[in-house]
């Protein structure tokens, strides 16, 4: 029993922290486990969860996608503008995904094919996406979101918001693709050792392209979901999410060096951060104080993950 508990904690270092947070917040605040609060928490974090799945793919190859946050913003704005002009929801979804995929493909070509550094490349695309979001929207929320999209943000099924179901769907597909397919296996192997992957005959540029492409695509989807959540496309919607996305992936236990981690771990990492932020809000901790707590927690979490994943000896 004890053995399996420690091995679970090694694989999923977020679990013990989540348990502690759940117990303490539900003791302190009676509203914490209230259905309304849980629903709000789930809906609010669906955007982060979808983007974090994309970031996990990139992390597993040993890379990083700093552009994902503003790709969310840019795809939300462009999708919002298209929907305002056409009132066509399908076209809006296509636009959001298309914009995301475009940025992802650009990152993928530059990093995978031309061999540029992920950090610098995605920092540059981050700036470009941010600029596009603000230029196209002139810095204000895009009006004229179709009613159906706003309404969709309120749909709830089995106590879980529809947007969260979509995020869960992304998580499931992510888990299946990474664990069951040869593509997923090759993602892990490339992250574990690029040279060995090349010497083994794995098409490394293609795998790298694919993870940045998918990360962008998921950023686009997250952008569309943000419109449903907020009712409007907001030009700065994703900008502040980057550190939460990266923090969630790292806290979940996916290594930045690549080759180790999983989407399930990221799901737990997102759960951990959402519970923390929601709980701190409920007990009335001011925003900037929360940042300090978040920062300290990321320290503790990475340290814990490192300790637990260190093997015998």
């Amino acid at each position: 029993m004890f053995r399996s508990l420690t091995s679970a904690a090694r694989l999923y270092p977020a679990i013990p922290v989540i348990v502690v947070l759940l117990v303490s917040f539900s003791t302190i605040s009676p509203y914490f486990l209230n259905a309304g609060n849980v629903e709000a928490m789930l809906a609010a974090n669906s955007v982060v969860l979808i983007a974090a799945v994309g970031m996990t793919l990139v992390f597993l190859t040993g890379g990083i996608d700093l552009s994902i946050s503003t790709v969310i913003s840019a795809s939300a704005v462009l999708s919002g503008l298209v929907m305002a002009a056409t009132d066509n929801v399908a076209l809006g979804v296509l636009t959001a995904m298309g914009v995301g995929a475009g940025f992802g493909a650009a990152n993928g070509v530059l990093i995978g094919i031309f061999g540029l550094t992920p950090f610098i490349t995605t920092m540059a695309t981050q700036l470009i996406a941010r600029g596009i979001a603000f230029v196209m929207s002139q810095g204000v929320a895009v009006r004229g979101t179709p009613f159906w999209v706003m309404d969709f943000g309120f749909w709830v099924w089995l106590g879980i918001p529809a947007v969260t179901w979509i995020a869960f769907g992304v998580v499931l597909i992510g888990i299946a693709a990474l664990t069951l397919t040869t593509w997923g296996r090759e993602v892990y192997l490339v992250g574990s050792n690029r040279n060995s992957a090349r010497f083994t005959g794995i098409n490394v540029p293609q795998i790298e392209f694919s993870v940045y492409f998918l990360s962008g695509l998921l950023g686009g989807l997250a952008g569309f979901i943000s419109i449903a959540n907020l009712g409007n496309a907001i030009p700065g919607v994703g900008d502040t999410l980057l550190l939460i996305i990266i923090g969630a992936v790292v806290l979940g236990g996916t290594a930045m060096e690549g080759g180790e981690g999983s989407v399930l771990r990221t799901l737990l990492g997102v759960a951990l951060l959402s519970i923390l932020i929601n709980g701190l809000n409920l007990i009335g901790i001011p925003f900037y104080d929360q940042l300090i707590v978040q920062g300290v927690l990321i320290f503790v979490g990475t340290w814990l993950a490192m300790k637990l994943s260190r093997r015998r000896s």
Binding site: R185, Y188, N195
Partner: peptide, 13 residues
């Protein structure tokens, strides 16, 4: 170690 193995992956993989 440099060009052959995937050290942090299982023997099976």
């Amino acid at each position: 170690r440099i060009n052959g193995l995937f050290l942090n992956r299982p023997v099976r993989e």
